[in-house]
């Protein structure tokens, strides 16, 4: 099989393109491979080390997941084992359009729903709801807490302290030591 010069160039370009695609594909797979059990562990700790107004801690401790995310299953597993703030039973549900967002104590916003952070922030208003996101920069766009991945792949979080105060929530200094204030 012989190639002309132009065919050969085209072939080489295709190969390079494929190589680049494979590289990105490989890296993308790894990047998407988030450990939701680690995040759910942190969310459990948020339920213990973030303080909600006493009057909101009645009945159940509600965690909502906005949209479809593998963390839902992890959080449900956690809820079957542990209790939330004030020893309330934890209930984890996927948020539907009809839900009143202010009923929740924690709302988790998967990266696929990041674009809707502004809508969610408006719906929640100043109600004591902890908005937890997982995409870089969302803590400055309305999320109360945003997960970060450091260079050495350690899971950390950033806390929007003014947002925390606006929503009448307090965070324990011990927990805050693990994250970053913005």
């Amino acid at each position: 099989m012989f190639y002309t010069a132009s065919q050969y160039n085209l072939f080489v370009k295709k190969v390079i393109l494929l190589w680049i695609m494979a590289w990105f594909c490989c890296n993308a797979v790894m990047a998407q491979d988030v450990d939701y059990r680690a995040q759910s562990l942190y969310i459990y700790k948020f339920s213990k080390y973030v303080f909600w107004p006493e009057e909101t801690l009645q009945g159940e401790f509600k965690i909502g997941v906005y949209g479809n995310s593998p963390i839902l299953e992890e959080l449900q597993l956690m809820a079957s084992l542990k209790k939330g703030a004030n020893d309330l039973s934890i209930r984890v549900t996927e948020i539907t359009e009809e839900d009143d967002l202010t009923d929740y104590h924690i709302i988790y916003i998967p990266s696929s729903k990041s674009r809707q952070i502004r809508d969610l922030t408006e719906k929640v208003g100043t109600s004591p709801v902890l908005l937890v996101a997982e995409r870089e920069g969302l803590a400055t766009k309305g999320a109360t807490i945003n997960f970060l991945i450091t260079e050495n792949m350690v899971l950390k979080f950033e806390v929007n302290m003014s947002k925390m105060a606006d929503q009448n929530l307090k965070i324990s200094p011990e927990l805050l030591k693990l994250g970053y204030e913005i």
Partner: peptide, 13 residues
């Protein structure tokens, strides 16, 4: 909480 200091984020420990 101290044990969470090095909690890996992506399952690529």
């Amino acid at each position: 909480l101290e044990e969470l200091e090095d909690l890996k984020a992506t399952g690529v420990s």
